Amino acid sequence: MPPRPPQKPNRRMRGFEPASGLLRDRIRTVGEARGFAVSRLLTHWAEVVGEDLAARTRPVKVGYGKGGFGATLTLLTMGASAPMVQMELPKIREKVNACYGYNAISKVLITQTAPMGFAEGQAGFGPAPKAPPKQTDPAIRQRAEETAQVVQDGGLRAALELLAQNVLSRSANRAVTKKG
């Protein structure tokens, strides 16, 4: 007797399915491979620990001891943020255990990395938001253009104009602070 072809699950589609439903099994498989019994810890990290901590940390893995009690959560953070995260470890452990529903995590370890690290542990830390550009005095801008106009190369001329604006603005700011 030939083998039966695999049958499709018998279910009715009711419009669009949420993306989380489509990815649920894959997320669970990846999470379990790294020791995360509760995938919510990975997918909703910002909700579990708060926006501030989530911006500075990423959960990497959960390691279980020999007896299965007292798991260790490993977090990834940038080196400069590590001391601040270290001070908040009891709060992180408390919030993660609240996510699990019992005292699953007994210890939290910190792994420090640079923003561009190993392929496995690359952190998605973004740069700080840029400050809006300062408005320069038109007289300073005109003087910077006059200073750099002898240069033929356009890119170099633009860089020299910007440098001249910065130097002249700084000099003007120092003069104002000395008077005041």
Rank of each mutant, 00 (worst) to 15 (best):
G35A: 07
E47P: 04
G21R: 11
R4G: 07
Q7H: 01
Q7A: 13
A172P: 00
Q152L: 12
A128L: 13
I27A: 05
D153A: 12
I110N: 10
Q149W: 05
P3Y: 14
T57H: 02
K95H: 06
A19E: 15
R40I: 09
Q122W: 06
A33R: 15
R14V: 04
N166F: 13
S106E: 11
M116L: 13
V62N: 13
K134F: 00
A144W: 02
L75G: 06
P2R: 15
D137A: 03
L76P: 05
A37C: 07
Y102A: 03
Q86G: 12
F118G: 10
M84K: 09
E145G: 10
A148H: 02
A164M: 09
K134C: 01
Y100K: 09
E17I: 11
G15I: 06
L168T: 01
S169A: 14
A54S: 12
R58Q: 14
L22V: 07
N97S: 12
P2S: 12
L42N: 05
K130E: 04
R93S: 05
N173V: 03
V150K: 01
A139Y: 00
M1R: 01
P3F: 12
V30Y: 02
D52Y: 11
Q165F: 00
E94T: 10
L41P: 06
N97G: 10
K179W: 02
G70N: 12
A119F: 03
G65K: 15
N10R: 09
P5I: 05
V108G: 10
G124W: 01
R14Y: 11
R141D: 12
L53T: 09
E17W: 09
E88Y: 04
E88T: 04
M87A: 12
S106G: 12
L42M: 14
A46T: 15
S20D: 08
N166G: 14
D52W: 14
Q86H: 07
D153T: 06
R24D: 09
D25S: 06
R4D: 08
L89G: 06
R34P: 00
L168N: 00
A19R: 15
L41T: 04
N97D: 08
P2W: 13
T77Q: 06
N173M: 09
Q122G: 05
Q142M: 04
Y102L: 01
K8A: 14
V48P: 01
P138C: 07
A158G: 07
L73A: 09
L168C: 00
A148M: 03
F125N: 02
A128R: 10
T113K: 05
L109R: 14
T74H: 11
R170N: 09
R11L: 14
R157K: 15
A114C: 04
V49D: 02
R14M: 11
G63H: 09
R34F: 13
H44W: 00
